[in-house]
Design a protein around this nucleic acid. Structure first.
Length: 209
DNA sequence: CTAACGATTCGCT
DNA sequence: GCGAATCGTTAGT
């Protein structure tokens, strides 16, 4: 048995194929995302997520069977990478969940930098470590080197994956709030499906309107 | 083919 | 706090 890996486990298929996307979004807090982009390894601890349901959720791109080239991957079995371009500028990273035909996903909104911080600084063209390195959905993808090239890849592979490193997040330190920037979803925008770690400085700064 | 619109971020005030 | 940036996706002609 490898001692070094005793407390580290890549999240497996049965983590992603479960049916309760809000529960998964909550459980992803404190998990780690690791990328190996052409041999460059960077990682971060997830501190903010949002759940999107393929059924009865007008905020979800794949809502109620809206199957298009962009949303196709969400209809596959969970455990895949869904990256899309937002506002013509930013790549947003989601992990797909649920079984084939059920198009659920979790948007990763913020991570706390862990490994490869020098590479993250370079990718973000920054000189010092501060929250806008990775505290936002369009920022962490830059820092971790994730883009639409990775659309559809398996999270069980060797490029992008998640790990459980036995970090415990106490439920009392988690906040559930409504999701950001989805007002077009009408009443569905009010669901408390955004989860973040209370008082964590790596949670995204949200725009006040 | 055309046009409207983002699951956001940054710089300037 | 406010508005610009910027382009793929989508739905409609």
């Amino acid at each position: 048995m490898s001692v070094k890996n005793l407390n580290v486990a890549k999240l497996s298929e049965n983590f992603y194929t479960r049916g309760d996307v809000t529960e998964i979004a909550l459980e992803l807090l404190g998990k780690y995302i690791i990328t190996n982009i052409q041999g460059v390894i960077t990682s971060g601890m997830i501190v903010e997520t949002e759940a999107y349901s393929g059924r009865n959720d007008r905020a979800c791109h794949a809502n109620n069977g809206n199957r298009t080239r962009r949303t196709e991957v969400m209809f596959e079995q969970g455990g895949k990478v869904y990256v899309y371009l937002c506002y013509g500028i930013h790549n947003l990273f989601n992990v797909t969940t649920n079984i084939e035909g059920f198009a659920d996903a979790v948007l990763i909104r913020a991570v706390e930098p862990v490994e490869g911080i020098e590479w993250m600084l370079e990718r973000r063209k920054m000189k010092e470590v501060k929250p806008n390195l990775t505290a936002g959905p369009g920022l962490l993808t830059q820092a971790l080197g994730i883009s639409r090239e990775h659309y559809g890849e398996s999270l069980l592979g060797k490029t992008i994956w998640l790990e459980n490193r036995n970090k415990i997040i106490n439920k009392v330190d988690v906040v559930a709030a409504k999701r950001i920037g989805v007002e077009y979803a009408k009443e569905d925008a009010l669901y408390p499906w955004r989860f973040f770690i209370k008082n964590n400085k790596w949670v995204s700064r949200i725009k006040i309107k």
